[in-house]
């Protein structure tokens, strides 16, 4: 049986870095790939694409609404158009355009938001995207993906470029530990069971996948067998994986760097309710805007760590055994 100790969790590149590098691979392979950015290309890392393909990179200035709709226009004319900014600005300032120029007319637009969650750190809450998944998942027809490491981000960007339909991909500012080997595949609607387990299931996405792996390690030391699932596809959701986890472990903890309201947790809960209701606990940002600090300080203070996930797992197990 796989265990937490199997994962070395060696620190890798930030998912935004992998996104930027992968865009260049796509650009080399397909001249129809175009990229728009709103004065953050050196942060979203679309700058790599801009340097190699200046004629296919469109600087939009600090004007996200226009950028999203320009991207939709490019996509409507057959381009594989990526629009990128900080997730907070892309989703909040560009939401109406994502809705009316991409989702509703079913346009093949690729929106990638970086610096998601609270781990952007020192810049503080105006830059922190803690509601982007709730917004993106509210758009009919959108696929919504949140990869956890550089390997999965690269694969996901290749996947969404080949997919016909509107997509939102979430990336982080901070570096993330490497979870996957180079051969892993990431179809839309899939998930990966990283650690087998029978007592409780820990489901995460993005940076909290590594925290869930660490939590499983500490639980194992206490004799608790925790399954860990990387639910990189927030929408569509891998319903079978959720139903199986509910049925086989009877308790699920969902951990994410997002508001607990409206994130992956509520989607997993809805799916469990529709398939196999079970005990659930949620680790996320709880109805609050965070503050400035280092990423580590913030993840500690706002309870998005392995220790918090392990505590939630024990609470779920206690509730399960009290049934």
């Amino acid at each position: 049986m796989a265990t937490g100790t199997k994962f070395e969790l060696k620190m890798g590149a930030a998912t935004r870095e992998a996104f930027g590098r992968t865009l260049v691979e796509l650009g080399r392979a397909n001249k129809d790939v175009v990229v728009c950015d709103a004065d953050l290309s050196k942060s979203t890392m679309t700058t790599y694409f801009a340097q190699e393909f200046p004629e296919r990179f469109f600087s939009c200035g600090i004007a996200e609404a226009n950028m999203v709709a320009v991207g939709a226009g490019l996509a409507s004319s057959g381009k594989i158009a990526f629009v990128s900014s900080f997730s907070a600005f892309l989703l909040n300032k560009g939401f109406e355009q994502l809705r009316v120029t991409a989702a509703y007319p079913e346009v093949n637009l690729k929106a990638v938001g970086t610096h998601s969650g609270i781990s952007i750190g020192e810049d503080g809450p105006s830059q922190m995207s803690i509601e982007d998944l709730a917004l993106a998942c509210s758009l009919p027809g959108f696929a919504v993906l949140s990869p956890c490491d550089e390997v999965s981000m690269r694969a996901v960007i290749h996947t969404v470029a080949a997919h016909v339909g509107p997509v939102f991909v979430r990336a982080a500012r901070a570096k993330s530990p490497i979870v996957y080997g180079a051969d892993a595949r990431f179809p839309i609607g899939g998930s990966h069971e990283l650690i087998a387990g029978k007592d409780v299931t820990l489901i995460g996405h993005g940076l909290l996948v590594a925290e869930a792996i660490r939590a499983a390690g500490s639980l194992e030391a206490e004799g608790i067998s925790a399954r860990v699932i990387d639910m990189y596809s927030i929408k569509p959701l891998d319903r079978d994986a959720v139903a199986r986890a509910a049925r086989e472990t009877g308790a699920i903890v969902v951990a994410e760097e997002h508001l607990a309201d409206g994130g992956l947790g509520v989607r997993v809960a809805q799916t469990a309710a529709e398939t196999t209701p079970c005990i659930m606990e949620f680790v996320g940002v709880n109805n609050v805007y965070a503050e400035s600090g280092t990423p580590d300080e913030l993840l500690d203070k706002y309870g998005l760590r392995a220790v918090n996930i392990a505590a939630a797992a024990k609470k779920a197990l206690a509730r399960k055994s009290a049934r």
Binding site: F58, N66, G71, A72, G73, Q97, T101
Partner: peptide
Amino acid sequence: SLACGMAL
């Protein structure tokens, strides 16, 4: 904005 994208 849409027309600009199409023209580009």
